[in-house]
Design a protein around this nucleic acid. Structure first.
Lengths: 178, 178
DNA sequence: GGGTACATGTAATCAGTTACATGATTTA
DNA sequence: TAAATCATGTAACTGATTACATGTACCC
């Protein structure tokens, strides 16, 4: 029986389709500075999941037979078809956010306000850092016209970061002026 | 040995601390129209997790002894302390977003543009719906001054939704005018 | 030549999810 | 009174995470 493929499965198929045959480590790097920003998972899944995809014929495996026996995965026609079908189906699913800071904020009334202030400070700082990372990425990859399309989701990422940054900063202003 | 408590554990502790002794179903409703928007989990966890918290003394259980034997959980001092400590510690963790649509967009070059258009349409619509829900919540709870504080995170939620909505709408405009 | 960072992988565990099941209330 | 919906719970499974482990390359 077919397992149900997860978003993570498709991310892996997609990356391999874009960049050709890849090892788990190649995937790690590729994910790290692209989709990894809106779909996180530990690198160990980049070893287990391709293996699973391969046993069902969506990927093909080639193993080095000397040295480290690195495995290189390539996409098969079956894999390509599955990926395309998934890509063509629009989703109503809106992003899921998992925001620890926001939960702490929700329970703010249970602790002294100064803890909320330091929370807000740290959050603002963290968002600034992220934003800087994104800006660097844009700078670095944005000039390659063939990558233009892939910059589009990055744009959303940046805007969300900016929104969050504004939120925490204005919270600080309001809080401190009370 | 103490298990490590997850954010979900603290969400449960927090809700019970805010509203007093609660059954799993009470928690379900309470979570549903508050923290549930930035920390999702299935209702079955509202049965298993309080049980786990109770075996470690952070919650106390009372079981009805007739009828359905509903279990009511109350927070203990130990639970309250654990919660407070967690709340007081600021996080550098910035929200994690899991956005299937954004991944499909990232792989856009692999499919015909019309699929991206319908993706964007559906996403815009979905965000509009969410935004409407949030606005209703604000309307409904915003007038109770004692709930004012709890509306703050909702504000961030709304702003993030608006940002996303703008993003998809402007994508549609650009795409269609090409 | 020793330290540190990168590269590569496995294994155990568990949080989280899905699926199922049934009792009580409301509504048509 | 049937059907639908709300309320309440359990059990099995597995994707995801954590932790461990070791090889290779570079650099000070």
């Amino acid at each position: 029986m077919q397992p149900t493929w997860t978003t993570t499965s498709y991310v892996i198929l997609g990356i391999i389709e874009l960049r050709g045959p890849s090892t788990s480590y190649d995937l790690k790097r590729a994910v790290g500075n692209s989709v990894g920003h809106f779909w996180q998972f530990p690198h160990s899944m980049l070893y287990s999941e391709p293996a699973r995809l391969a046993t069902h014929g969506l990927l093909r495996t080639e193993e080095e037979n000397e040295g480290r026996r690195r495995r290189t995965y390539s996409i098969t026609d079956k894999g390509r078809t599955a990926l395309a079908e998934w890509l063509k189906a629009p989703t109503d699913d809106v992003f899921q956010i998992r925001n620890v800071a926001e939960i702490k904020l929700f329970f703010a009334e249970l602790v002294d306000p100064r803890y909320i202030i330091s929370l807000a400070e740290r959050q603002a700082e963290a968002h600034r850092t992220r934003l800087a990372t994104y800006e660097e990425m844009k700078e670095k990859f944005g000039k390659h016209t063939h990558l233009k399309l892939r910059m589009v989701p990055l744009q959303l990422g940046m805007e969300l970061e900016r929104t969050a940054l504004n939120f925490w900063e204005s919270l600080l202003r309001d809080e401190l002026s009370k």
